[in-house]
């Protein structure tokens, strides 16, 4: 009918394929960070390979000094000790979410990049009881 349809039909097909690929194939690799459980289970110890690790900073685990901080990142089932070089961002705190980037040698995660992750809860300081997020997929 119209020459233009020769463009529209393949474009729709291409968009569908790209969308399907994104939704079904990349789901595992599109994650921004790995949880401690995943790192302990799936990631081979390699001081060269960089990856991101994310979770909650375990309360009571934080030790700071000499341009470094050491703490433990935990999820529901596992935890990993982290040694971070550099000054943490302003909102870094025990019990808060954090994503660190660095290497995993099997015992300690050494990071030099730290990003704070905050959850979808917005609470006033005297507000309701804080419930930690449970929907980490």
């Amino acid at each position: 009918m119209k020459r233009y349809l020769w463009f529209v039909i393949p474009a729709l097909g291409l968009a569908g394929v790209v969308l399907g690929y994104l939704l079904f194939n990349l789901s595992d690799t599109l994650v921004y960070y790995r949880t401690p459980t995943e790192v302990r289970r799936e990631v081979a110890a390699d001081p060269q390979a960089r990856l991101r690790l994310g979770g909650q900073v375990q309360v009571g685990s934080l030790v700071a000094g000499g341009g470094r901080v050491a703490f433990v990142i935990a999820d529901e089932t596992s935890d990993i000790p982290v040694e971070h070089t550099g000054t943490p961002p302003q909102l870094f705190q025990e019990g808060g979410g954090v994503v660190v980037e660095g290497t995993w040698d099997g015992t300690v995660f050494r990071s030099d990049v730290m990003i704070i992750k905050h959850d979808e809860q917005y609470r006033t300081e005297d507000g309701e009881i804080y419930t930690p997020p449970t929907d980490a997929p």
Binding site: V99, D119, Y122, P137
Partner: peptide, 23 residues
């Protein structure tokens, strides 16, 4: 759908709104 750095929706989401009334 994908675990990311950006926080999940607080309002348009399955389950309740994760925000105090003032906000």
């Amino acid at each position: 759908w994908w675990r990311g750095l950006h926080q999940p929706p607080s309002v348009i989401r399955p389950g309740g709104v994760q925000m105090d009334n003032e906000f």
